[in-house]
Design a protein around this nucleic acid. Structure first.
Lengths: 182, 182
DNA sequence: TTGTGTTACTTTGTATTCAAAATATTTGAA
DNA sequence: TTCAAATATTTTGAATACAAAGTAACACAA
């Protein structure tokens, strides 16, 4: 039937849109890097530190939605530029406490949001209702996509959910309360 | 004003959603790679070749929304596995004509869409109206974001558009005919 | 006390991604 | 013809990004 065919075509179109969005984010990250000497992910980390104060490396990874290994590399570069400080926790020497230096605080206060300024401006011109609609649609896409990651592992092992996959589920469910259906 | 504050909060939430979507796409790409020995971008390229037949490297880059340099790396790996063939064009020896091998055709016919299967399934359960709404919102985000990349450079230099920024604009405009020189 | 398993982070290896520089080729003008 | 500009691709260098393996430290039990 035609409707079934149409669903497949939405898939491709949606994938293309997502790819273009990802590309735009990446291109803006590079623009940021050349203007403010900070990439998008670096700025996201600095902003999180600015907001939360001292954070462990792992907590930062969770908040930034990045893996532990990725955070290490980003922190290496931020530390090298003296934007952050790393210090092993006295309580638990496995943990690494990350904090902003004055230089880092200065940098984050001068940098724009890690999102295209023009995009923000255009977004701001839209009525709040429309902005909420965009956020709602994005969240529904997130939920549909992340559900896959949760279900996939048990599907493969064909056993009950592992402690690991439950951690993932808890992590992914995050802070987003179900938005009201329009 | 409260509405202004709210706009800022949407920014952060939208950025977070986008980051999570990008992460989900990346994680699925790795899942694909371990199950089908093809990453998302590799599969996107193979599917484009399957759809269009022989393509130049540049045309492939445009269709996949990737830069020329990125395509080279992906083609290197696909060629190494004998999924594609590269051949310099006889007409214009600068161009490289890329085509699927039988092995590549086989691979692409067996691989799923480069989008989470579960996501596709969930999407399919939604009414067509809702699917269209999602696509419409994603496209509006794409447009707001890509407009930034085009406008940003001239805004900063506060002078006439450079040749460089025009190249970017032309590339991003994608299927639109090249803009006339002022 | 001595393992044993878990946790937190770093290291390693691979892939994507871009800009910018390098290379090869074509095109168009002098 | 010759030479400069434009075009198509590749190469290079840097940053993300992950999984998986490695290291160090904690925690709990035997």
């Amino acid at each position: 039937m035609a409707t079934v065919m149409a669903a497949g075509q939405f898939d491709e179109a949606i994938l293309t849109s997502l790819r273009r969005i990802m590309r735009a984010v990446d291109l803006y990250s590079r623009q940021l890097a050349s203007r403010h000497h900070l990439t998008g992910p670096q700025l996201v980390c600095l902003r999180l530190l600015h907001k939360h104060g001292v954070m462990t490396s792992g907590h930062l990874a969770q908040e930034a939605t990045l893996s532990a290994g990725t955070i290490t590399g980003i922190l290496d570069r931020l530390e090298q530029r003296a934007y952050i400080r790393r210090e092993r926790s006295a309580d638990d020497k496995r943990q690494v406490k990350v904090s902003l230096t004055d230089t880092g605080r200065e940098a984050v206060s001068q940098a724009p949001l890690p999102l295209q300024e023009r995009f923000q401006q255009r977004l701001a011109t839209l009525p709040a209702t429309r902005q909420q609609e965009i956020l709602y649609v994005l969240d529904s896409v997130v939920n549909m996509m992340e559900a896959e990651a949760v279900d996939a592992a048990p599907l493969l092992t064909s056993g009950p959910a592992t402690a690991e996959s439950e951690d993932v589920a808890a992590f992914l469910s995050d802070d987003t309360p179900p938005p009201p259906r329009p």
